[in-house]
Design a protein around this nucleic acid. Structure first.
Length: 214
DNA sequence: TATAGGATTTAC
DNA sequence: TAAATCCTATAG
């Protein structure tokens, strides 16, 4: 609920296509109460949309399983999983229940936060979860109350889209411009200068009118 | 039951 | 450029 960050985004806010949420989440603040009781937060500067079972990069493309169950549930909840046996990745479930879509949070600008072990960087999907102490214990958790919540923040001046990172196995879907970044941020997982350009040049990123800002 | 490989990060 | 590290998805 409300604290220094203001009220959390309501769960119904997320019941839209992942592509829209990925753009609108840029600038939003992720707030986490860690296992040590400390509150940590970061401003989201990079996201990726995973748009459904037909998206070959989306985990839901292989059907409904124990791991992907949360993606099939209602929007506004956390989908957290382990990759490479090492890294916890944090996603936001979007869309209507039964329609598995999610947005991966790939980078944050820390807001005066240090991780439980003194970490300071949030520029990577595995780094930000360590910094904010997010892991599978948050699986399925609603995103409108502690220990995990999202709050409106300062919207980016400019949004750029690129293909998603690390999904080369996904065939044609690997080239889709479903990664969204705050072009002004110096804390992206992969700098724009080293990101492949979006396949369709003039496809601009637009924030929807439902975007909250402060 | 066995095996391959992954929405990554770090170190050599 | 490769190792770390474990869980899931698929094959046998």
């Amino acid at each position: 609920m409300g604290d220094a960050f203001g009220p959390a985004l309501e769960r119904t806010w997320y019941a839209r296509p992942a592509e829209a949420i990925a753009a609108d989440l840029l600038g939003a603040v992720l707030r986490v109460t860690g296992r040590d009781g400390a509150v940590r937060a970061g401003r989201i500067v990079e996201t990726e949309a995973y748009v459904g079972p037909h998206d070959l990069a989306c985990h839901a493309a292989r059907g409904r399983t124990a791991r992907t169950e949360a993606m099939f549930g209602p929007a506004g909840h956390a989908y957290v999983y382990l990759v490479y046996g090492l890294h916890e990745l944090f996603n936001v479930v979007t869309g209507e229940a039964g329609d598995p879509q999610a947005v991966l949070i790939r980078a944050i600008e820390p807001l005066a936060s240090r991780g439980p072990l003194g970490e300071v960087r949030g520029d990577g999907p595995g780094r930000l979860t360590r910094l904010l102490d997010v892991d599978r214990r948050h699986y399925g958790h609603p995103l409108d109350r502690p220990p995990l919540s999202l709050h409106p923040g300062r919207a980016p001046a400019r949004i750029v889209r690129t293909p998603r990172i690390g999904v080369a196995y996904a065939g044609a879907w690997a080239a889709e411009p479903l990664r969204f970044v705050d072009a002004e941020s110096a804390q992206l997982s992969v700098p724009l200068s080293r990101s492949s350009p979006a396949g369709n040049s003039s496809r601009g990123a637009r924030r929807s009118s439902r975007t909250p800002s402060t």
